[in-house]
Design a protein around this nucleic acid. Structure first.
Lengths: 209, 209
DNA sequence: GGCGTAGTTGTTCAAGCGTATAATAACATC
DNA sequence: GATGTTATTATACGCTTGAACAACTACGCC
């Protein structure tokens, strides 16, 4: 009985592949679909190998959640340019591919549903979430200051909460109802709405139709 | 070996209890925690009984999802009063108990994560979601008309999308980060923001601090 | 007050789960 | 090319799962 041949992959690559396979399983069949056997099949290895890299199934799920959060937030947190440009980019990035698509939503919702139950996931969640909102709040402060407005802390906080909510909600709508909107439509609505909230133009160049 | 004694409940009551037990299981341990045995234990019956009322586990989960959606939307869809009062109530209801709490979010997210995978759940979702947004859109049209503004359909649609997004997002923030806000704070931010979006006061009576 | 019905129980079954561990083969090193 | 290390496979174990089904009993009915 010959064993199947295999390839010894470097640790980093193997871990990455396993996590990617995990995300595929979750996106396709939910957390319940992410069994060690299914993950292994997808990654093209046998089930036992997962325990060689992750102490338990819990651990690989936690790592996978970190990756999900990172992909949802990292692009928006690295915008460049002047304050106005950065704010605009932040908005657009969060409402277009690859951040906004149904797979992202499936993954996000799968983990969110367990955040209030699983303390480990809750910790990972809080970390990523605060980072995101702080990035937005400082973006707003910079923008207001650049426009010569006093950056009243209370107002900044309220604005950040509102805009964060608006972006979350529109992202949700776009991911869920995808085909009901053009990408441009949600971005356009977001820009117009946020201009109304702040009371200043964000100067979207020929984006608002 | 004597069997345990039992009570023959009327169908409606028994089905209700079983669904309630299902929701408890999901809220506490996610969809994975909703096994026929756990549901049965919570409902105080044996596992076999579930299959007497529901053709399969899938069916009881679908019924449970219908209940979740109904509880999230029914109160807001039944607001009364003049247009301004109805709009204000709609906003407040969606951001306070019992619609906004962490259990609601857990249940919602659990099902949402499978909507893009399970066609049956997707159908149930679309039904409830469109009802909610239509309710908001007609509320807006009434409000604008009552204020003497022309209810331009395109603007109504964009406004409904934006406000729906804002409410969803703030609901999410409130449910997830609950302790970071006072209930009043999110409601207050929502009212102020929506006034800015519409460009009209909603006349919140002494609610905005 | 006995009977029939069907709501409910208890048990069983195959499948699939996470985990543990021994055997094996790929690769680095010399 | 032999050797040592360890990534990887293969197999096994104990447990839980959704489902099926026969036996039992509560309760409406006449």
């Amino acid at each position: 009985m010959s064993r199947r041949t295999f390839h010894r992959a470097p640790e980093g690559e193997r871990r990455h592949d396993l996590i990617e396979a995990t995300l595929d399983c979750i996106a396709e069949s939910g957390l319940q679909g992410a069994t060690v056997r299914q993950i292994a099949i997808r990654a093209g290895v046998t089930a036992g190998l997962i325990r060689h890299y992750f102490a338990s199934k819990e651990h690989i799920l936690q790592e996978a959640y970190r990756v999900v959060i990172a992909r949802l937030t990292e692009k928006a947190e690295r915008v460049t340019g002047d304050p106005e440009e950065r704010l605009r980019s932040f908005i657009v990035i969060n409402l277009t591919e690859p951040v906004a698509n149904s797979r992202s939503l499936s993954l996000w919702a799968s983990f969110i549903s367990r955040v209030s139950v699983d303390p480990q996931l809750a910790a990972i969640h809080r970390e990523g979430y605060l980072g995101f909102r702080n990035a937005l709040e400082s973006l707003l402060a910079d923008f207001l200051q650049a426009k010569g407005q006093e950056a009243d802390p209370a107002r900044c906080r309220a604005l950040a909460i509102a805009i964060n909510g608006l972006l979350d909600g529109l992202w949700l709508e776009g991911c869920l109802a995808g085909e009901l909107f053009e990408e441009r439509e949600l971005v356009s609505i977001a820009l117009t709405s946020i201009e109304a909230l702040i009371g200043l133009p964000i100067g979207a160049p020929a984006t608002t139709q």
